[in-house]
Amino acid sequence: MEILKAENLVKIYQDNGVPVNALMDINLTISKGEYVVIAGPSGSGKTTLLNLLGALDKPTKGKVYFETENITLKEKKELSKIRLHKLGFIFQAYNLIPVLTAIENIEFSMMLLGIPDKVRKEKALELMDELGIKELANKRPNEMSGGQQQRVAVARAIVNNPSLVLADEPTANLDSVTAGHLLDLMEQMNSEKNITFIFSSHDKQVIDRAKRLIILKDGRIENQ
């Protein structure tokens, strides 16, 4: 089942008045449950593409369909709703809320959905247990290692049962062992919960474990 489709996507940035072609004529279809890695050298447009697919940015031309719905022209409020209900994000720099504990960070997106306090606490703890990070529940981000923070970020991304998780260079700040554990975890989530994962990465370990690899070069898909 098709979950995401990009049609003739073009993204042109203005750099001091000079147009920069970040993405050119991207056509792409992702099916439910896929485990996709978008790879390519720095500046190839990986993050730009991920941002467009995740409704964080708008294309200069072209369309993005999420679950057959064209999200390109949607209002900020509607996009925000889609991100809350259907998407999960994992960032390179973890980006946990520094003043919240691990469990509160995970609970936060459930709170946005209006899930009652008790239910979300139970669900967050259950998920933390599943991901092996239960003991971090009451720790704040500055009390955790990079790998621990990224596991909490994964938990935050999947706690609302999204259809799609977008991970931008999730292992870039981690050592290879920790990165390996994290990838195991996401693979497990992909196979057990059938969550679709799209990574952008130039980490060999991530690329090697891709079930589908899309290679970008100079803003164009070179190989998929």
Binding site: L56, R83, L84, F89, I97, S109
Partner: peptide, 13 residues
């Protein structure tokens, strides 16, 4: 940056 993350995870304006 933090606000960006909050928006990305679906926090309404």
């Amino acid at each position: 940056r933090e606000f960006g993350v909050l928006m990305a995870i679906g926090m309404k304006n």
